[in-house]
Amino acid sequence: MKSTLVIDGKPTNRLRLWLSGLGLVGAGLLWLSCFLIGPLLALSLLAFASRGDYGDIIWQFNLENVWRMVGFGTFGWVPDNLLIIGRSVVLATITTSLCLALGFPLAFWIADRDRRWRVLLIAIVMVPACVNLVIRTYAWQLILGNHAPPAVFAQWAGFIPADAALYPGQAAVYLGMISAMLPFAVLPLYTSVERLDWSVVEAARDLYGGPWRTFRHGILAQVTPGLIAATILTLIPSLGMFVVSDLLGGAKYMLVGNLIQQQFGAAADWPFGAMLGLGLVVASLVSLLILLRWGSREGRI
């Protein structure tokens, strides 16, 4: 055996390096190809197939589903799908912004407590996330129902007519969305804030930085990774979520999630559903790339 390489004081060769490398990443690679790459490939193939008369799949590849996704259908061009996608993006963006706006102060407040309290408070934030989303959303229906105290108070104060409930409506949808997503925003923010190096903040103050500059360069620059993680963890799941808007918003408007479900359900049009799903994956990836690029730029400051 001719060994030309020495690593960690031991002689080795290329083959051995390759094998040990493969051993290290192999499990991860296998996992990724089984649960991510494989399904994604299947989805991409299905997206370009077409529906048979009875919901069967015809494996003739064409671009029809792309055209249908942007709105060309039986009724000529209609903005329906684009409206649905736009509405989902707006809902996800507002939800994410609200979660960050609420999660940031909450993370600071928790990080400022005693060690004992911190564990308890984080647990309180996380525990609701362990309960099934549908059940939590139904719980909101009960809380906002017309015989529950909040609605009774609103009826008494004259904000809503007698016998009316506080849902369905936009406010109820955002309440449900925030309660669903807040834990995923708080946790990464908290881990960032907890490790904050306060000497940098002091240095910023010593150098006569105003409140904004101190925050911008002393705090924000340090917590950017947490902020990015929080944005990703709230934005991407809320893009596909539709239970909350159905149960608390009266199901008057479809979101992308509903549209995809309709194709796999009532419409029995799996290829078109796959195309919409693929569109959602691509949109998520693009926003992820933008966020990461922004993050790496921010990190350098």
Binding site: Y54, F75, D80, I84, K252, A267, A268
Partner: peptide
């Protein structure tokens, strides 16, 4: 059969 799509698209219109 093939007109399932017609009703599905109409429903999408209702919901959008």
């Amino acid at each position: 059969d093939k007109d399932t799509r017609l009703h599905a698209e109409a429903w999408t219109a209702v919901k959008s």
